[in-house]
Amino acid sequence: MGAQSRLAELKLQLPPAPKPVGVYKPIVVAGGMAYLSGHGPLKSDKSLVTGRLGLDMDVEAGYDAARLTGLGMLATLEAHLGSLDKVKRLVKLLGLVRSTDGFDQQPAVINGCSELFRDVFGEDNGVAARSALGTNALPGGIAVEIEAIFEVDA
Rank of each mutant, 00 (worst) to 15 (best):
M1K: 09
M1L: 12
G2P: 15
S5I: 03
S5L: 07
A8D: 15
E9H: 02
E9A: 06
Q13H: 07
L14H: 05
P18I: 10
V21D: 14
V21E: 14
G22R: 01
G22K: 02
Y24F: 14
K25W: 03
I27A: 11
I27Q: 14
A30D: 15
G31L: 09
P41E: 07
K43V: 00
K46M: 06
L48R: 14
V49L: 15
G51R: 07
L53H: 09
L53P: 09
G54Q: 13
D56M: 08
D58E: 13
E60N: 11
E60M: 03
A61K: 15
D64M: 07
D64T: 04
L68I: 05
T69L: 10
G70A: 02
L71K: 12
L74Q: 02
L77P: 06
E78L: 00
E78Y: 02
A79L: 12
A79C: 08
A79E: 15
L81A: 08
S83Y: 04
K86T: 01
K86V: 00
V87H: 10
K88F: 02
L90D: 08
L90V: 07
K92Y: 03
G95T: 01
G95N: 05
D101C: 00
Q106L: 01
Q106H: 07
P107Y: 03
A108K: 15
V109L: 14
V109R: 13
G112D: 11
C113S: 10
E115Y: 04
L116Q: 12
L116E: 12
F117D: 14
F117W: 13
D119W: 04
D119C: 01
V120I: 10
D124S: 08
D124W: 07
G126D: 12
G126F: 02
A129V: 03
R130P: 01
G134I: 00
G134R: 00
N136A: 06
N136Y: 12
A137Q: 13
A137H: 12
G140E: 15
E145I: 04
E145C: 10
E145W: 04
I146L: 14
I146D: 15
I146H: 14
E147R: 09
A148F: 04
A148W: 06
E151W: 06
V152G: 09
V152L: 14
A154Y: 10
